[in-house]
């Protein structure tokens, strides 16, 4: 096991989340936007696990903190991500059937 300080893992998580936000905002291909959302969910997962690892340290572990919460929350996040990907990609297929494109700019159904 590694001895990297928790702050460095959290930094990686923040940078990964920022990358996901950037992709979510500047791309107009629906599939790449969904991939960016997966990046953000993974960053959140990494944060949960870093916190769990942090509280498992020798001088912190005694005071009733349940370090299993991190892995369990991560498990639920992975589950929700799977459901989200399934619904999102089904929507992409329905969208493509309707418009013959995957450009987000074409989604103006609610505006008109």
């Amino acid at each position: 096991m590694m001895n990297v300080p928790t702050e460095h893992i959290l930094t990686l998580s923040a940078l990964l989340f920022a990358t996901g936000v950037l992709g979510f905002l500047i791309r107009r291909n629906v599939i790449i936007v969904l991939a960016s959302i997966e990046l953000m969910l993974n960053a959140a997962n990494l944060t949960f696990l870093a916190a769990s690892r942090h509280w498992s340290q020798t001088h912190l572990a005694a005071d009733g903190v349940n370090i299993m919460q991190g892995p369990i929350f991560s498990l639920f996040v992975i589950l929700v991500a799977a459901a989200e990907a399934a619904v999102g990609l089904a929507l992409v297929i329905a969208f493509y059937r309707l418009k013959q494109t995957v450009a987000l700019d074409a989604l103006t159904e609610l505006k008109d």
């Binding site: 001895n3 300080p5 702050e7 940078l15 920022a18 950037l22 942090h54 370090i67 991190g70």
Partner: peptide
Amino acid sequence: TALSLGLVGVVGAGYSTPFVANPAYERGV
């Protein structure tokens, strides 16, 4: 947004407390 989020992370990396592994979790957390 991305820049400020990243900057928060980089500033946070400045505070690095050493990690002391717990021997109770030697085989995985």
